[in-house]
Computed example of a mutant assay.
Amino acid sequence: MAIESIAETTQFLTFRLAEELFALDIGKVREVLDFTTITKVPQTPDYMRGVINLRGSVVPVVDLRLKFGMASGEQTVNTCVIIVEVEMDGEKVVMGAMADAVQEVLDLEPDQIEPPPRIGTKLNTDFITGMGKHNDQFIIILDIDRVFSVDELLLVEREAAAVNG
């Protein structure tokens, strides 16, 4: 979802990673779960925490802090897993995204959203749809379909297949 495509009020689920506030288009979010036991799968990247059993389906879980190069966080009573649908080669892939805490569902008007900052060439900001402004606070709006590369999603699918046997 490009910033230009946000022409009307859009609902976002906001969540915290460290001190930063992030948001996902509510249309991509299936549900939010309390933190649960995650089964680690060998030979996967650090940010790939493992898999959970979601009503009989194997769902890979990614630690967004580690994915974004942040320090690993302490697990608290607010730590949760946001279940999202990611688009990959025209197919929907269900994944879990670990967050420090879910804040709220928020309506943002198009005039409350600015294009992502141009930080330079070293940092990939392709997965940032825009910067929302709400109550004098910036919200980093993520394009969850772009947070993960196709290679990473293929790894996730292989991981889930290996666990399914």
Rank of each mutant, 00 (worst) to 15 (best):
D136I: 01
D63A: 03
G56K: 09
T37D: 08
D63F: 04
G90K: 11
E104Q: 14
T129Q: 14
V156T: 14
K133T: 02
V94C: 05
D100E: 03
A161V: 06
L153T: 02
T36I: 04
V102R: 13
E4P: 07
T121I: 07
L17R: 00
T37L: 08
K28S: 04
E4W: 07
A99P: 03
F35M: 08
M88I: 01
N53P: 09
N78A: 13
M88S: 05
S57Q: 13
S5K: 02
A23W: 15
G27L: 09
Q11H: 10
D126Q: 08
D111M: 05
I6A: 01
P42N: 15
T10P: 00
Q112S: 13
E104I: 04
T14E: 12
K133R: 08
I3M: 08
G50R: 11
I6Q: 03
F22C: 09
C80R: 15
D34S: 09
D136Q: 08
E91H: 02
G56I: 01
N78L: 10
R30C: 07
D25T: 09
M48T: 00
I3E: 12
F127E: 01
V86W: 02
I52E: 13
R118C: 06
L17E: 10
G96C: 03
I3W: 15
H134D: 12
V105Q: 12
D100S: 08
P116I: 02
V150L: 10
D145F: 00
L54A: 05
I128S: 01
A18Q: 11
V41N: 13
M1E: 11
V147P: 11
F22V: 03
V29P: 15
S5V: 00
A101P: 07
M1N: 11
I3N: 09
D136Y: 09
L106E: 04
P60F: 02
I144S: 12
D151T: 03
L24E: 06
R158S: 14
P115F: 14
D25K: 13
L17I: 09
E109F: 01
D107P: 13
G56S: 04
I52C: 10
G50T: 05
V62E: 03
N164M: 09
R49H: 01
D136L: 04
D25C: 13
V81Q: 08
V59K: 07
V58G: 08
E87N: 06
I83G: 07
T121F: 11
A2Q: 10
Q11V: 01
P117I: 01
L106P: 11
E157L: 10
A18Y: 02
V150N: 13
E31N: 13
Q103W: 10
I26F: 05
E159A: 13
N135K: 15
L155P: 08
P110R: 06
Y47G: 00
S57T: 07
A99Q: 01
N53T: 06
Q11K: 12
T37S: 14
E4Y: 10
K122F: 04
I119P: 02
V58C: 13
N124I: 01
L142I: 10
K40C: 03
D143Y: 07
L33C: 09
L13M: 15
I82P: 06
L108M: 12
L33D: 09
